[in-house]
Amino acid sequence: MPGQTTVADRILQFNAELAETTLELPAGFTVINPFSGPLTDRVREVTTAFYRKYYADDRPRRLVLGSSPARRGTAVTGVPFEDASFLESVTGVDVDGYAVSRPSAGFLHDVISLYGGRDKFYADFVMSFVCPLGLVRTGPKGNEVNCNYYENKTLLKALRSFLVDSLKRQLSFGIDTSACCCIGSGENFTFLSTVNEEEGFFEKIVPLEHPRYITQYNGDRKEEFVNKYLSAFGEQGD
Rank of each mutant, 00 (worst) to 15 (best):
M1A: 11
T5A: 13
T5V: 14
L25Q: 06
G28E: 05
F29K: 04
P38D: 15
L39C: 03
D41L: 15
R42T: 14
V46K: 00
T47P: 05
A49E: 11
Y51N: 02
R52M: 07
A56F: 13
R59Q: 15
R62G: 03
T74W: 04
T77C: 03
G78M: 04
V79G: 06
E82F: 03
E88S: 14
E88P: 02
S89N: 10
G92N: 06
V93E: 03
V95S: 02
G106R: 15
L108Y: 12
H109R: 15
D110E: 09
V111Y: 00
S113R: 12
G117W: 13
K120H: 13
K120R: 15
A123E: 14
D124L: 05
L135A: 04
T138E: 11
K141N: 13
G142D: 06
N143D: 14
N143A: 11
E144L: 14
C147Q: 12
N148V: 11
L159T: 12
S161F: 09
S166P: 01
K168D: 11
R169W: 03
Q170S: 07
Q170T: 06
Q170E: 10
I175L: 05
I175N: 01
S178G: 12
C182A: 14
N188C: 12
F189W: 07
F189I: 00
S193R: 08
S193T: 15
E198Y: 02
E199F: 02
E199R: 03
V206Q: 03
E209K: 12
E209I: 05
Q216N: 14
Q216R: 13
D220A: 12
K222S: 08
E223T: 10
L230T: 02
Q236D: 06
G237E: 05
D238S: 15
D238L: 10
